[in-house]
């Protein structure tokens, strides 16, 4: 299992796709927002938590099609399916690798982008906390979308259509944590909900992802 993880990480770093592009996308989306809505500091401060969450979510989504597609093309997935490691576990590892290469950097860079968006002081902690708690769910749900569409040529757009509705609960609770944090309110309830979603999704979603991938590998 660690071998698979290190392999995926090494591939992601060498190809440069995961780390660099996701972060660059997050940065550029955030930079575009003030151009679209105007540079008023109060307005930016108000929408900052939501915009940052949406940016992180889209950056996550964009890197999903690389998650399984390359391994599908070179036959690695067939090997994984016949290996003693259950496919559920293998997909969890892949989701973890995706989170480490995409989600974690997004979490780490988000305070910097928060400064750009004029995020109020108390919001920083909660933005980082909510993203740290929510992005694993995004990676795991995204793995399901990737497993569904791995056999479809040019499936990227289709995958967005399938995955985005599944992101709704995570986005709502995650952005709510960040917003309440930024406004100095108590974010405990949405935080617990977000944690619950992440825990449930991490536990159960690999079953669905593996089922979908098995169908595609038949």
């Amino acid at each position: 299992m660690t071998a698979l993880l290190t392999r995926d990480l090494a591939l992601a770093i060498r190809a440069g796709g995961g780390f660099g592009l996701g972060l660059a996308f997050f940065l550029i989306v955030t930079v575009m927002v003030p151009f679209a809505v105007g540079p008023v500091p109060e307005l930016l401060a108000r929408i900052a938590p939501g915009v940052l969450w949406l940016g992180a979510l889209l950056a996550c989504l964009l890197s999903l099609d690389r998650l399984l597609a390359l391994d599908w093309e070179d036959g690695t997935l067939d090997l994984l399916a016949t290996s003693p490691l259950p496919l559920e576990a293998a997909l969890s590892i892949k989701a973890l690798a995706h989170w480490i290469t995409t989600g974690l950097p997004l979490v780490l860079i988000s305070p910097v982008l928060g400064v750009l968006m004029n995020l109020p002081g108390p919001g920083f902690v909660w933005l980082v906390v909510s993203l740290a708690l929510g992005t694993p769910a995004l990676s795991v749900i995204g793995t399901f979308g990737a497993a569904l569409t791995v056999g479809v040529k040019r499936g990227g757009l289709l995958m967005s259509l399938l995955v985005l509705p599944l992101y709704v609960p995570t986005l709502i609770f995650g952005a709510e944590v960040a917003r309440r944090g930024a406004q100095g309110m108590d974010p405990t309830t949405p935080l617990l909900m977000l944690a619950g979603i992440t825990a449930g999704v991490v536990a159960l979603m690999p079953l669905a992802s593996a089922a979908a991938l098995r169908v595609n590998l038949r």
Partner: peptide, 22 residues
């Protein structure tokens, strides 16, 4: 695949309903 999506989608539709209420 569509059946699996329908199952998973149902769970998330219910989740979304509660999330949206909240």
């Amino acid at each position: 695949l569509t059946s699996v999506l329908c199952l998973v989608g149902s769970v998330f539709a219910v989740l979304s309903r509660y999330a949206v209420n909240f």
